[in-house]
Amino acid sequence: MSDTVTLTIDGREVTVPKEMTILDAAATIGIDIPVICYHPHLTANGLCRVCSVDAGWRVQAAACVTQVADGLKVETRSEDVCRGRKTILELLASTVNLEEAPEILALLEEYGADTERFAGSEKRTAPVYDDNPFYLRDYNQCINCWRCVQVCAEDAQYVFALSYDGRGFHTQIGTFMGDGMMDTTCVFCGQCVGACPTGALKPKRQALLEQGYDPDSIFEQTRRKRRPQNKAE
């Protein structure tokens, strides 16, 4: 059996290793399928579905988690594909503050998404959590891409400080019983902050710099005395 397969993407034939995803196969011939939740270093979960393409099946296929197959004919920008993509983007824009997510903002523009289409509908809101000296958590900007939960768990750190509150539309990233990060198993490795695509997780230093504080005062605000001294107080 051959280790490669040949398929057609947007009318162009391409031969790739048979275990490749449609997303990667398209990239080999310069076809860029948009993604939001996908990160090349993390387990792909097919959450955002913005990478959905028409592979001639009953429903569209999420390119980031769908393997190529011989003879497959894939359309990455058909009318139906763009209709779904635009609607997902509009739904997202009506739910979450995307101001600090430039890649998603660019997609909104590219697909002609009407960000006011669901004006007045419920947003997913939360207080801004400023509960540790390292980073802020503003889930008003969180799109539930799961990257932070994944790097905190089996995709990297095995710390398991993060999980979820709620279900469905009301799902948010959460901690055990809503504890502040200092009271969780968090080791402040910072990987979640690095993986966050929307600014929902932000280094505290960056946030304070943006607010106009100078580095000296930021150092004063964010330093913690060493634990033994804390105990002595």
Partner: peptide, 19 residues
């Protein structure tokens, strides 16, 4: 009520459909 919240179209779409 029953959407699990995993994929975007369902978690967001079921809410907007309801509204």
């Amino acid at each position: 009520h029953e959407s699990c919240g995993k994929c975007f179209p369902c978690q967001l779409g079921t809410q907007r459909q309801l509204e």
